[in-house]
Design a protein around this nucleic acid. Sequence first.
DNA 1: CGGGATCCCAGCAGATACTG
DNA 2: CAGTATCTGCTGGGATCCCG
Lengths: 233, 233
Amino acid sequence: MCYLIVKSMARRTYAQHCGLARALDVVGERWTLLVVRELLLAPRRYGDLLAELPGITTNLLAKRLAELEKEGLVEKVERARPTGGVVYRLTEGGAALEPAIMELARWGGRYLVGGPRRGDRLDVGWGLLSMKRRYLGGITLEAGIVVGEREFHLSFTPTGLVVHEAPARPAEVIVTTDAKGLLAWLFSNGDPKALRREGVLSVSGEEESWRTLLRAFAPRPLPPPLLVPARPT
Amino acid sequence: MCYLIVKSMARRTYAQHCGLARALDVVGERWTLLVVRELLLAPRRYGDLLAELPGITTNLLAKRLAELEKEGLVEKVERARPTGGVVYRLTEGGAALEPAIMELARWGGRYLVGGPRRGDRLDVGWGLLSMKRRYLGGITLEAGIVVGEREFHLSFTPTGLVVHEAPARPAEVIVTTDAKGLLAWLFSNGDPKALRREGVLSVSGEEESWRTLLRAFAPRPLPPPLLVPARPT
DNA sequence: CGGGATCCCAGCAGATACTG
DNA sequence: CAGTATCTGCTGGGATCCCG
């Protein structure tokens, strides 16, 4: 008897003719969806991703990017940034993961209500994605958010919101704050107007646009946290 | 130097204060979401799950169920079935995963357009979930679907559809078919009326309800399959 | 310095056997 | 029927090295 040992085994698969199983075959491995999340706001360089995904190791990031590229979800693009070099960008197929990522994040949001746990990393970009989830629709507005060195541009249309990490201007209203201020805006049920009065948020541009902006977001949903049975068994 | 080796390491975590990362901490491991998918239609016994998740091994299923139970997403319930014994049932928190599962399945659906691959398993329950995804809303109807030995009850309301694996009756209309017929209904763009004329689907109950049922589903979307770059490098 | 490749090892997944 | 126990091999984590 003679067996041919195939090098480079085919990837592990659930072998089920089901959309969920097939999706998990492609993006179900560790770190994969987090890489896609990082690319939702803008194309990124390898080093950007390494810095924004604390805990991932360089070999694993390289592997995940190669897999995503092979699946046609991510493509390498030359010097899309002023600094040159190559960036990784979502293809249409990769960007189509956004609804699934948003629903997973909405579900996971109930674990965030207690605030960050010890050792948890925070990132301004993640906050912007959570803003996107909470957009109620119904307004038309170009807005910018400046958080420290990072800038985001938000294009509101009545049916959706496109967020890019890109120059905040031109925009009808610009909100400037720092990371802590953004989190206060997002995660506190406090009035953004109060945060502005306290100087945590600084607003420039049209006052009317600022008021429009505030109307567009649902208040923090505050779902009841999951009850973990207290049996210490 | 002396290190205390902590037995029972804490579970691997991304340590990110982000809904997506937290969701993946909880349900991102292999098989977990597929277990939840099986429980979406009805509570299941351990042996049911083992049979419906071909490829999972008994130790891993036990581990996943224990984790889901500890997280409060699944609970063990005594003799919910006529045959007695204990079944696993989703809690409210576990059932709240449905939108995320549906969006992932919708995305993965584009990999299904070529039909099952060699070796892929098929399951009638997965087909019912894909029906649920394609419900357009707008009707009120109680329907039943009988596929071989398995029965499903569908409660249509204008805003949603609840599918349970449960006795098909009582219902205003009952569709009886076999597994192949259900898949033809779901995955072909052929007219269900034609399938009925050919005897693949047999309909009992009110004719008007049958016509209502047909109006309620979007035709197969047929998204373009992802283009996998042909470079064999 | 950006963008990886290589090595090693711990832990998780997979297969099988066994038990209440 | 409903799991546990045991073994093994693969995948992911960590450190280091390479190369333009």
